[in-house]
Design a binder for these strands. Structure first.
Lengths: 224, 224
DNA sequence: CGCCCTATTGAGGGAGATCAACTCGGGTGG
DNA sequence: CCACCCGAGTTGATCTCCCTCAATAGGGCG
């Protein structure tokens, strides 16, 4: 069950700073967010596109009864808030303290119309997300808990430390809502992986891959 | 909503025919496909973008052991095969006999660079699919079988016959692989809905919505 | 009419959820 | 420095929803 995180307001004044452009041809500014702070909300006007500079964030949707689905975790370089319509379709929160570059959508659109590199960048961001979501649909709809957790560990390991160690900035609850499972199942599955010798947990947020082959059954091996 | 111009069918012998453009500023040609025929395959070169003229199609991915996830059903006006990379990430098949317009990707890209309307059209297609996939992730990850089937029925009813009747061109197996369930569960859930008086099944492929309120619990009511 | 594919129904089992207790670890204040 | 506290994580017991396996019923087309 998702419970809204307390948001420390009142420090917004100092948080905004003029900054160099993280994207081709468009200037933006950065904001700092604390752990669990909202970056933007579902149904909010999609006036900005957000690019992660440092830290990690999650985008997600919540049902009226509190069930939550994490759509994606975002790391430095990743973009959030690219939408078709005037309003966001997901909410975004900081997983840990992070810095985010905000680019005004109107300026980005204008730049994209004249600058091919910006248009291309925007297109790549959208189609990159499409690919990710298609992959993740296969996982959500058709994979077992063990396969889900294994795939997640390998993906997290791939993006940090050369694939040998998965560092997890997010909580078990975040992982559960990302994989369509519960925290208990995440925990039990990791314990089982450790018993099998597939992984070693230095701490709950730092997991070494010991025997990759035990985690790769059901992998699709596209390797791009 | 894009409505297809009438296309002269019945010329299956010569499946390819030069045809007018379904998209702004780009000429394409159409092809006819029989039920269950492949339109394009995963890992095939993404040389074309495909627009449905008539009939229905499914895009999907398959794991090595045969598990299948249907990503989306496509109806007249919908586009398939918009990709970032050089190869398709999903396969597409005809659900029933259908006509599809093929637009060469290289020409579409060229047109998009010079023509704002084409660029806009391409962008809308991609972001439209993004929205759909985000909606569907919530369904796959966090909804019960009854909620999944109910949402599917309402979505299908919405696109045919003013929302009162859902006409289903696809099989139970297609629906199951779309919703992350089994055919048996689909069947049982529909039977239960009928017992509850929520629906009436004229035939297995034609379902009337009788008491919409019984199907809308857990709906998110965005209404756009 | 008979065939084959699709859909439905039934019985039983299992993967993962739920409910509950306990442990761990990091931060805070005395 | 240590006791305390509180959130995060783990573990256990039980339940249940949905899957699996199996048999039966339609329904379209030759």
């Amino acid at each position: 069950m998702y419970v809204a995180a307390p948001v420390n307001s009142g420090i917004c004044a100092a948080k905004r700073s003029v900054e160099a452009s993280p994207t081709p041809g468009v200037r933006g500014f950065t904001m700092n967010f604390d752990r669990n702070e909202e970056i933007f909300g579902e149904e909010e006007d999609a006036d900005f596109v957000y690019q992660m500079i440092s830290g990690a964030a999650r985008t997600f949707r919540v049902l009226s009864d509190g069930r939550r689905q994490v759509v994606r975790f975002h790391f430095p370089g990743d973009v959030m808030g690219v939408e078709r319509r005037a309003r966001h379709r997901v909410s975004a929160e900081a997983v840990n303290a992070c810095v985010v570059a905000l680019i005004r959508r109107s300026e980005l659109d204008k730049a994209a119309r004249s600058d091919a590199a910006t248009a291309r960048w925007l297109w790549d961001q959208a189609t990159d997300e499409l690919e990710h979501l298609k992959d993740h649909m296969m996982l959500l709809g058709r994979k077992s808990a063990a396969e889900k957790v294994a795939a997640f560990l390998l993906a997290m390991a791939a993006r940090t430390g050369g694939g040998a160690v998965a560092r997890l900035p997010m909580s078990r609850s975040d992982i559960a809502d990302y994989l369509g499972l519960t925290v208990e199942t995440i925990s039990r599955t990791l314990t089982q992986f450790e018993r099998d010798g597939a992984i070693a947990m230095t701490s709950s947020r730092c997991i070494a891959i010991r025997r990759r082959e035990l985690l790769t059954s059901g992998e699709e091996g596209r390797g791009d």
